[in-house]
């Protein structure tokens, strides 16, 4: 109960430390979600709508990715980006360094894009296959047909994005490994909760947990509100 009260107090008092952590959490997870949506929705649409050699293998890899432990993704990204790693040693400006928000974005993008792609694929495959032929008969180009199928599968596609967001906003293992939980730099809600719990500050940990829950809830409410009419159909 004290945690709840403290969460409320922190929010009302516009606690700068809390707002910094929340802002970074949203920036990292929001950017990662943007990348995974940009990659995942087209990939899911292609896998759901076309047949090509190796499709089954790609789907099998995707399903594996959907169940991949985030901490393993974190380890993978850590090894890639570390100074002696295959990407880290290139010293290219576009390749992020370890213990930066950008490295966390890379890890979270890898975690969430299989979910976005996999759920999008399932949603697209759930649309009556006859629809494609019928819209083509009405004069749709290939691109217009794909877009129409995606719009018909919009509820499933939205769910895929929500699932993608849910998987990264609450993720701790990967961001802890590649971000390092550095104060004012890479500390996000989940890593802050771990730290406060270890320090014995259970009230603050609960407060941060409540903020995380609230954030997740608000995001879903906003998405549902934006798509209200879609869900009502």
């Amino acid at each position: 109960m004290r945690g709840l009260v403290q969460a409320f107090q922190l929010i009302v008092a516009r606690d700068p430390a809390l707002f910094e952590i929340v802002a970074l959490s949203l920036r990292v997870s929001g950017t990662a979600l943007l990348f995974s949506t940009l990659i995942g929705i087209p990939l899911g649409a292609v896998l759901g709508l076309s047949r090509f050699v190796g499709r089954r293998l790609v789907i099998a890899l995707l399903y594996t990715g959907m169940g991949f432990p985030p901490v393993v993704v974190g380890l993978f990204v850590y090894l890639l980006l570390s100074r002696s790693g295959p990407l880290g040693q290139l010293h290219w400006p576009v390749i992020p360094s370890l213990f930066t928000p950008e490295a966390m974005i890379v890890a979270q993008s890898i975690i969430s894009f299989p979910l976005v792609a996999g759920f999008t694929m399932a949603a697209v495959m759930g649309v009556d296959p006859q629809l494609r032929q019928q819209v083509q008969a009405l004069g749709a180009t290939r691109w217009q047909t794909t877009l129409t199928v995606l719009l018909e599968a919009r509820v499933g596609v939205i769910v895929s994005v929500i699932a993608g967001f849910g998987s990264i906003i609450s993720e701790v293992g990967a961001v802890m490994l590649v971000g390092g939980n550095i104060e004012h730099r890479t500390r996000v809600l989940t890593t802050a909760i771990v730290l406060e719990t270890r320090k014995g500050n259970f009230d603050l940990a609960i407060a941060l947990g409540m903020v995380l829950l609230l954030l997740s809830f608000l995001t879903n409410v906003i998405v549902l509100w934006l798509q209200g009419r879609t869900f009502d159909e």
Binding site: D128, Q130, Q133, Q134, V135, A137, L138, G139, L151, E233
Partner: peptide, 30 residues
């Protein structure tokens, strides 16, 4: 030329939108 021909199928699949949007669909494509 393909757009000068169209088909009405035995089992019509309508878009999950309004009747108006369905009828307007082909015109919007163009």
């Amino acid at each position: 030329l393909r757009r000068r021909v169209t088909t009405v199928f035995q089992r019509p699949i309508l878009l999950s939108r309004s009747v108006w949007a369905n009828v307007n669909y082909g015109l919007r494509l163009r």
